[in-house]
Amino acid sequence: MKYWRKPLDEAAAGKSRGEIVVIVDRCKGCGFCIAYCPRGVLRLSSGFNKKGYHPPEVVNAPKCAACHFCEALCPEFAIYVVEPDTKT
């Protein structure tokens, strides 16, 4: 992450980081999570799920800032973000 200035408490505060979990078989491939990810972490995969849709896949995992917007927007409850305990 690029800052226009270095935060004074950068070492103490840390950066929030998330791990995206996709429940592949729930996805219906609407693409909301991909279009509205502010960091461009997701991409439509070329593979199919059980129902024949293309679920999203994570392409840029370290860029996820755990904003949980994909989780909130997903109409199928198929994607969510886990925040690891230790912030890096």
């Binding site: 219906k28 491939g29 609407c30 693409g31 909301f32 849709y53 909130a72 927007l73 997903c74 109409p75 199928e76 409850f77």
Partner: peptide, 9 residues
């Protein structure tokens, strides 16, 4: 609900 339907959201 259909793919992309907003009701799920």
């Amino acid at each position: 609900w259909c793919p992309g339907c907003g009701i799920g959201t």
